[in-house]
Structures are given as structure tokens and as C-alpha cells.
Amino acid sequence: MTTPRKVTQSDVARAAKVSQGVVSCVLSGRSSDTLSVGDETRRRVLAVANELGYRVRSSVRREDSAAASRKQVLLVTPAPHRGASSAVKDSAVSVSYRSFMEHSVTEIGAHLSEHGVGLSIHQLTSEKGLMQWLTESDVCAVIWHTSVGDGSLLGWVAARYPLVVVNQAGQSTQLLDGVSINQALNVRLPMDHLWESGHRKIAYFGQVPGNLVFEERLSAYRGFVCAKNIHNYEEFQAIPDEQLRPAAEKVQMILDTWESLGEGAPTAIVLGDVFALLLLGAAQARGIRIPEDLSVVGIDNVDACDYVSPRLTSVAQCFPALCESVVERLMRRIQNPDSPTQFVAIAPYLVERDSVRKFSQSEVEAIIDN
């Protein structure tokens, strides 16, 4: 008689239709410290685990526990008050950020499970806390999915674990394995689309001083307007983009700037979805027609882009390809710790909808003359 196969967290995750990271949080009782798991999701995970016969061993020998934990990869994410989620009181930023992280956790967890590896999640509240957590644990590798902060902490982790850094533009391939969305293309794709649609006055908003992702995007914008010999609308780059300033307030400043430029105002603007979606409603309230008066292209292609009016043209991020590459690179690093480091840039793609006006040749000539 064959022994029944032990039910794993991966089995529970598949049956409950959630990520393994969510299952890990619920079954370990640490959900409040990691992911924000809703009551309905928590009840569903517990019900499925009970139905499948999943059992948590409350007392195991130390060596057995250590052996099991070596099948776990630690995903380090930002704390709620840091990085992209620092403006937690700003619902638009919060929703966008949660969507981004949920995509990442789900995809990474699914790819790791194909290798028989589980996923644990640690929100980086303090450097000391992470170092203590890792010292007392025995994970097999680390995925770094938060802002780098103090390079010494990242170096400390890299010296002890196979490590892949996610979405950190500009990482040196001589030091770390990294996988990122091609941030320059996040700007060049919409700029090319607007140019082909006849736009010759194009603005860009989105800069966080010291943030390499936003610096790379801004550099791509400046390179484009220089190559095309068109105006660089620095007025929009001068608008404060502090993380704690509400997105709605920034949108009002963008529209104030646009109106102040009169006939010299740009016919199009490129900015993140968080701002672009708010801008559509704020512009309508001012009597600014989208796209007749101002075309708008977002970055990130969140779900809401399809449900606003006009539907928002936006640059989509290839999360499946990004996460697959992260896990592939990590597995290679685990199997061959001395292999050369590598930085992989994943290309985004443009999703065309209704928020961009297409100009005729005569209209283009009139824009240039003005």
C-alpha cells in the first residue's frame, strides 16, 4: 500500500487560487506582518487547507526544520511606509502599488513552485530586523524587490545568499544579478507613439530625486526631445514629486502648469498611471477635453485603464517575463554560485486605447508653426 503524498502549501495555493506567498502568510499566522490578506481570502485558504488535509507540524526537530527551510526563497519587499508605498494615505498610489506587488508575488511564487521551492515574504521595516531574521533562518536564496537603500545591507545579503535584485535600474552587473523592466522604453514607447500620431509638443512628468528608475525615465525623455529637436517642457519636471504629497494635488499642479502655458502648452503628456487616471477626471472638471485638447499616455497599464473615459493608452509591464527571468536567474545562481553576474532588461509594450489624438499632416504643420 502506497503512502499518501503529503499535502503542501503549493497544493493549497492551487486549490484556493491564490499565491503560495498568501498561503504561507495565512498558515504561518504572520499575515499581518507580511501581505495584507483579506478576511474572505484568509477563510478560503484555511477552508481549503482543512479540506485537503494540510497539517502544520507544531514540534519538529531543529535539523528537520532547517532542512525544510532550505527549500524556501525569501522575497524582500518594501515596508508600507517606504518606497513606492510610502503615501499609504493616498488611495490612488496605494491601489497601484498593491496591484504591482500582488502581480509580482503571484508570478514569482508560481515559478518557484515549479522548482519545488516555496516563497516567504519579509517587508523591510529595518536593516537590523532583516539581518536578525536571516541569521535565525535558513533560506536558500533571496529576491530583493525593494529600493536598495544602504548598499552595505545589500552587500551583506549578497555575501551570504544567492541574490537577485528586481526592478532596480542601473545595477552593476559586476556586483549583482538583476532583472528589471527597461525603464527607458517605458518613456520611449509612448513618445514614439505620440510622434507618429503627429504630436510635436510633448511633456513628461515623473521624477523622484535619487531614484534610479525615474532618473532613467527622465533621461530617456530628454534624449528623445533632443534627438527630435523639439521643446523640453521642464516646467512639468519642476513640479514637486515628493512621495508624501497626494497624487491628486500633483495632478492639479500639472493642469495649472498646462493652462499657464497658453498656446505654447504641450498637446500631450506622458506620466504614470496613478497620475494619468486622476488627470482624466480633473481635466474634465476644468473643461479640458481629452484627447482633443490634451492627449495622455500612462505608464504601468493598471486594470483601471480599460474602465475610464476615455480609455487610457498606457505602457504595460511584462510581469510574467520579468518574474520568470528572476526565478531562472536565481536558480542558476543557486546551482552555480561562481557564475558571472548578469543584468536582464525586460521590454514593456504599448497598449493603445482612446486617450491619444491623431493629427493630420496639415495640423502637424500648424503645431510646428506655433
Rank of each mutant, 00 (worst) to 15 (best):
I181S: 12
T267G: 05
E235P: 08
L163S: 05
S180D: 13
D273K: 00
A159F: 04
E234V: 09
I230G: 05
V157N: 07
P162D: 10
L153A: 11
E216N: 03
L185Q: 09
L218T: 07
G198W: 01
H193E: 06
L189Q: 00
I254Y: 04
P190Q: 01
V179R: 00
F214L: 09
D256F: 12
V187P: 02
Q252H: 13
V270Q: 00
D241S: 14
E263G: 07
E242Y: 14
V213C: 13
P209V: 05
N229L: 10
M191L: 15
P162W: 13
L163Q: 03
L153Q: 06
A159G: 08
G170M: 09
W195V: 06
E215S: 10
E216T: 11
I269C: 03
G178Q: 10
S260K: 08
Q252I: 04
N182Y: 12
S197L: 04
L185D: 10
L255P: 11
N232T: 00
G198R: 02
Q174G: 14
F236A: 06
N167D: 15
I254T: 01
S180H: 05
Q168C: 11
R188A: 10
Q243G: 07
L244F: 15
V166W: 10
S197D: 04
W258G: 10
W156M: 11
G206Y: 09
Y161I: 08
Q243K: 15
E216D: 13
E215W: 01
I230A: 09
H199A: 10
D273T: 02
P190M: 02
G272K: 00
S260E: 07
K250M: 15
F236T: 00
